[in-house]
Design a binder for these strands. Sequence first.
RNA 1: UAAGUAAGACAAAUGAUCGCGGCCGCGGUGAAGACCGCGGGUGAGGAAAGUCCGGGCUUCACAGGGCAGGAUGCCGGAUAACGUCCGGUGGAGGUGACUCCAAGGCCAGUGCAACAGAAAUAUACCGCCACACAGCUUUGGCUGCGGUGAAAAGUCCGCUCUGCGGAUUUUUCCGAUUAUCUGUCCUUUGGACAGACGAUCUGGUAAGGGUGGAAAGGCAGCUUAAGAGACUACCGUCCGUCCGGUAACGGGCGGAGCCAUGUAAACCCCAUCCGAAGCAAGACCAAACAGAAAGCGACAGGCUUGCCCGGCCUGCUUUCAGGUGGGUCGCUCGACGCGGCUGGCAACAGCCGUGCUAGAUAGAUGAUCAUUCAAGACAUAACCCGGCUUACCGUUUUGCUUACAGG
Length: 115
Amino acid sequence: MKFSESLKKNHQFQFVYRNGNSYANKYLVMYVKENGTEGNRIGISVSRKVGNSVVRHRVTRLVRESYRLHEAIFNSGLDIVIVARKNAASVGFHEIESALLHLAKLHQIIKVYIY
RNA sequence: UAAGUAAGACAAAUGAUCGCGGCCGCGGUGAAGACCGCGGGUGAGGAAAGUCCGGGCUUCACAGGGCAGGAUGCCGGAUAACGUCCGGUGGAGGUGACUCCAAGGCCAGUGCAACAGAAAUAUACCGCCACACAGCUUUGGCUGCGGUGAAAAGUCCGCUCUGCGGAUUUUUCCGAUUAUCUGUCCUUUGGACAGACGAUCUGGUAAGGGUGGAAAGGCAGCUUAAGAGACUACCGUCCGUCCGGUAACGGGCGGAGCCAUGUAAACCCCAUCCGAAGCAAGACCAAACAGAAAGCGACAGGCUUGCCCGGCCUGCUUUCAGGUGGGUCGCUCGACGCGGCUGGCAACAGCCGUGCUAGAUAGAUGAUCAUUCAAGACAUAACCCGGCUUACCGUUUUGCUUACAGG
């Protein structure tokens, strides 16, 4: 991804959980915290409650792909943690994509194009 | 053709666009580690799963001995090894192809066996039979039953103990049944009802008996009062011997009338095998750093496989404070895949040719669109192999079996 890295360490996740703002909908939970750098850092968390290994990998990929395709319209300088909920295991790409954009809109971190 | 059985193969496909991890090449930036761009090629499974066995590899430990502990369990072979595989033996199931088996030892010892049943490792409760006795008799014989009954007395047991409850024995009473007799009724053999009278001891037996997983080999005969391996034939069991087989075992012959249930996935006995921990193993490089206090102490402490003997080492432990948690290797060429030949019934082994087929490190395979169909199940490598077990939408190949039809 051109502008983004991923969150790797557990303490980075914990920092965002404690200090960031969160919104949730049916499929996802999103935590956002400014990190004071140029780019965004994104972390995706899928617990074992969601499903077995195959299901968790698929959900992770769907979320990452959704972010990647809309990376350009996100604001910069943010740590974003996206947690998948149990319902996310049974839906396709378009539902995940719209859920991600919905949460981003609630956080007001995407550029809204007025045309 | 249908049903079945055994052994395999595949695990949606194709195209376009966007995107990701290694690798190779070229180019650029930079002192370097590296980073960026372009191109090429490559990128999960039959179970990658469960982590249940076995091995390689690594580190630690290891003179040695003993005791524990664990695993396996018909025989032979294969293998690096196995609890796996192959071939056989025995047993069970199936018409069959074929499948299944925790398949050593209860004649070492100990334990357990609910319920049912008269009786559970040994039993006479019923039944059958005999002698005697009693009753009746047509002089042939027939019958001799036993109740969650009542009362009294005795014995034993339990409890909330000067009583209550339970079990059992004896006596008396009551009742039912049966044989005989008498009376009445019904059409007869005969039956129904009412009344009268009488009514047990001893021994033999293991053939039969609603149980049970199991009842002292099975079945038939002979014998007998009734019966019984008491005796006999066949089958089974055990012992001996001969033959075949490497062996498990099989077959023949002879002998023993057969002292005795099941359970060893109960303890246990016997035989064989087993050092521990695991790639977060471990090796190297770089960076950073700071110690302090208390306690124990050579009759101590630590390491030695779980314990002991024995052996080795000399400081050790706790608390508080602080630093690093970055990179490289291990990491994929291997008991490897494919094809052929040879040996072997086979598992497998040897030789020749050929191929290189993920290597991430928070973790890469995805998304969108279109088309097709049988409409897509289970399930994501994490050091590597050999197995086992479990999950699974389906498609398909070959051999064989049974049934039907045709030739």
